[in-house]
């Protein structure tokens, strides 16, 4: 189980989270408790989107 803070550390992480939010079309991600473990299904989606935004 992973939290948003663990997936998106620091100022650069915060920007990556914004990109993931747009990629997934999930504005509600900004309201998630960043220290709360993500549901497994959501975590998979977030990781996949992170992989996409980290590609060129």
């Amino acid at each position: 189980m992973t939290t948003l803070n663990q997936l998106f550390p620091g100022n650069l992480g915060r920007l990556k989270l914004l990109r993931v939010m747009l990629r997934l079309g999930m504005p509600e991600l900004s309201k998630y408790n960043a220290n709360q473990p993500l549901e497994p299904m959501l975590e998979r989606r977030v990781r996949q989107a992170l992989h996409e935004v980290e590609a060129g």
Binding site: L15, R19, L22, S30
Partner: peptide
């Protein structure tokens, strides 16, 4: 009104 405009503005600023 997707709710993502502010995030979009932050990224344009970035």
């Amino acid at each position: 009104d997707s709710g993502m405009r502010i995030a979009g503005e932050h990224l344009l600023l970035d």
